[in-house]
Design a protein around this nucleic acid. Structure first.
Lengths: 263, 263
DNA sequence: ACCTGAACACCGTTCAAGT
DNA sequence: ACCTGAACACCGTTCAAGT
């Protein structure tokens, strides 16, 4: 399991702190950027539900009506915050036909870690497909990696969809667990144990498989589970690249020549 | 593509209509069941956001406070509605080692169709992991199918997670598209065309792969895309059953003997 | 142009009062 | 026990009025 997965400890401050011009009375001057910063601060500290026009305005020392000069409506605000978050994922490693599969996995790990840094913002990404300026470069990068791997066009196109769906859904689910009861944002360490005990206590006549698999069902931390899903999806993709190879899905020898990106 | 996927045309009435005892003044008597029926009616006709305590109470001809005698809080109501919906999925076909893969796919198709029948209820399933009475039998059935396929315990356990994640995420995304702008619940038939045109119009220097794959990215209806994801995941699972077989992921000969469910 | 207070039409939930 | 009206503490958004 990669050490790049930094876990989901909430970060109380926005990723890149900016300085803003201040008004006469020491308050931060209103601007779209200042509003997005304030919204991100609230998001990271208190979660997406706390990001209300009123709460964000309060942070900026004004009333909710004042935000409407810089933001169309609440959804516009949340979309903009989401786009910033999406802009945090790393797409700088150039696609390499020798490493494309590992690069793709690394990209998805990074995406998961990025969502985890920003509480339950993934919910916003699930609710409406991202349309901000930072979304396209991310899609382009994914397609570039798949192309580097020689994945057929149609498979690449639809795989990108499935992969982002898996990424986003995982992020949503994990943010729900960490952050469920408004508690300290901690995962209950006894949760596994309780869960397993519960499953074992079920009627074996009605739920034979749940009872029998209580162990496997509750083992593994988040990283391990995510990696499992990643591997499962990668095997599915890899099997389209070399459909009849016995080695499909297993690490292959070094110097394989991949077809050129397109056509 | 299976014809069992009935599509996502909203159904204005709850699946099974029940009759309720009526009060003196002709109003439906309040009960947990009557409340759930009312909530389901609102859900199917107007979507999850319209399911408010006030709106449901209105349907029943009372005020919101009256619901709290039968329902703990709004989340309890939504969870109960979700559990009913989950109860609609068909788990009656006994797991058969000869057909397990197709049965598993059929189960997931049925799940998707069930969600689609109830607007954007999938959002509630994504937000909190289902804990109702109908959730366990569904998990049990999935595990039974995977066991029938001889899938190793740990793979079966985690695969069930990944598969439900894919199912739920797909359902959420699709409900969002059909139902986005409060419009007629119809998918814009020109959406594909517009989307493709947009992608082709992008700067080929910045987004070479998106421009090149504009076609594949926008082809395929929902059923085709869902089936693709299904096949991809099934190949990932199948590759763990016979890891070194050249035929992994491709339809295999008929009379294969599967190992017994457990250990 | 940007900002604001007050208001409008909504929420979920509580609580004292009724039957 | 069940039901209710009124109230409380929230929402997003609008709009006339200010600067």
């Amino acid at each position: 399991v990669s050490s790049r997965i930094v876990g989901s400890v909430p970060n109380p401050l926005p990723h890149r702190r900016r300085t803003h011009p201040r008004q006469r009375h020491g308050r931060i001057a209103l601007s779209r950027d200042a509003i997005l910063d304030a919204a991100t601060t609230v998001l990271d500290a208190e979660g997406l539900d706390a990001v209300t026009m009123r709460r964000v305005a309060e942070v900026l020392g004004t009333g909710p009506a004042s935000l409407y000069a810089h933001v169309q409506h609440k959804d516009d605000l949340v979309d903009a915050v989401l786009d910033r978050v999406i802009g945090e994922v790393d797409t700088s490693d150039p696609p390499d036909p020798e490493r494309w599969a590992e690069q793709l996995k690394q990209f998805l790990r990074d995406g998961r870690a990025t969502f985890a840094r920003h509480q339950d913002i993934a919910r916003a990404s699930m609710a409406n497909i991202p349309h901000g300026d930072n979304a396209l470069p991310v899609v382009e990068y994914m397609l570039a990696l798949l192309a580097a791997g020689g994945v057929p066009d149609q498979v690449a196109a639809w795989s990108a969809d499935v992969l982002s769906l898996y990424l986003t859904a995982t992020a949503v689910e994990e943010s729900m667990e960490t952050w469920s009861d408004g508690a300290a944002g901690e995962v209950d360490p006894h949760h596994h144990v309780e869960m397993e005990r519960f499953m074992r206590s079920l009627d074996p006549a009605r739920f034979p498989h749940i009872v029998a698999l209580a162990g496997p069902l509750t083992t593994g931390d988040r990283d391990a589970r995510f990696e499992f899903g990643l591997d499962m999806l990668m095997r599915g993709i890899a099997s389209t690249v070399e459909p009849v190879s016995p080695a499909a899905g297993r690490p292959r020898r070094a110097s394989r020549r991949a077809p050129t990106p397109r056509s």
